[in-house]
């Protein structure tokens, strides 16, 4: 069975149609990349999948392991294994990153029917994952994303992803704002999570990320649809030629 199956998905925000019949199938173990011009609806797709309330689905379907995603609350989607690394992570003043992580991990575990992690187990796990992502322990004591640099925010998203053990990971421009070393760290973090039962949808503007996270499939999105699908070589072609060819494709 497909891990994520999106069929003819249509969605609007503020009376404006953004997704206009989008089709996409991600099988377990696959990494798909989506590239496309600004405003083509990539983030909208990620929000619709995650269940943001201002986005109204007007047609089509989206399923995770055969289950209707669109019927579920955002937290239920997370419990089923969907994870979205935000293009613009949100700040939560007053709540330490560590507390946030622990609350999230235990909330998800509880919904999945697992035991809560004990404090020592949790701490061991966070330390290990944080170290792999080169995240300083002090950063975890600070409020979630408050005063984090752009790169720190992105690494923090990947840390959350690693801790929540999702099945389907959607990464919205996780590479933007990262310096060259951080890009490598984040990509390594993602590669470590690659597994045969896990799928990735990597939204990016740049081929260089795909040098590190080599995708199985590359899609081009324009005006709310997937207009072309190919292999990793497609990303190189886009880098060279841009999106002009797709202006009227949608």
């Amino acid at each position: 069975m497909a891990l994520l199956e999106v069929k003819n998905l249509q969605a609007r925000v503020e009376e404006k149609d953004i997704l206009r019949g989008l089709n996409l199938t991600v099988n377990p173990g696959e990494v798909h990349a989506i590239m496309g011009p600004n405003g083509s609806g990539k983030s909208t797709l990620s929000y619709v999948l995650a269940g943001k309330s201002d986005y109204e689905v007007t047609g089509g379907s989206a399923t995770l392991e055969g289950e209707d995603l669109l019927e579920l609350e955002p937290d239920e989607r997370a419990a089923r294994g969907l994870f979205l690394a935000f293009q613009y992570p949100i700040e939560i003043p007053g709540v330490a990153s560590m507390t946030f992580l622990r609350t999230a991990v235990n909330a998800v575990r509880k919904k999945r029917g697992d035991e809560e992690l004990s404090t020592p187990d949790f701490l061991r796990l966070v330390r290990e994952k944080a170290k792999e992502l080169n995240i300083d322990q002090n950063m975890l004591k600070r409020p979630v994303n408050v005063g984090f640099s752009g790169g720190e925010k992105k690494r923090n998203e990947i840390l959350q992803m690693a801790m929540l053990e999702p099945k389907m990971c959607v990464l919205d421009e996780t590479d933007s704002g990262l310096d060259i070393d951080a890009l490598k760290i984040v990509a390594d973090g993602v590669n470590r999570l690659r597994a045969k039962n896990r799928g990735f949808l990597v939204i990016t503007h740049y081929q260089r990320l795909l040098d590190h996270i080599v995708p199985d499939v590359v899609h081009v999105m324009a005006k709310g649809k997937i207009v072309r699908t190919g292999g990793p070589e497609l990303a190189h072609e886009l880098e060279a030629k841009g999106y002009a060819a797709y202006d009227n494709a949608a």
């Binding site: 309330s53 955002p74 979205l84 999230a104």
Partner: peptide, 29 residues
């Protein structure tokens, strides 16, 4: 400050229910 919709959605996308999200932010506050 305000507990914004964006903040709630961010928490919920990490598995917290709406009530858990408010409790978390308020406890922090």
């Amino acid at each position: 400050s305000k507990i914004s919709e964006d903040m709630l959605f961010y928490c919920r996308s990490r598995g917290l229910s709406g009530e858990e999200a408010v409790a978390l932010v308020v406890n922090g506050f």
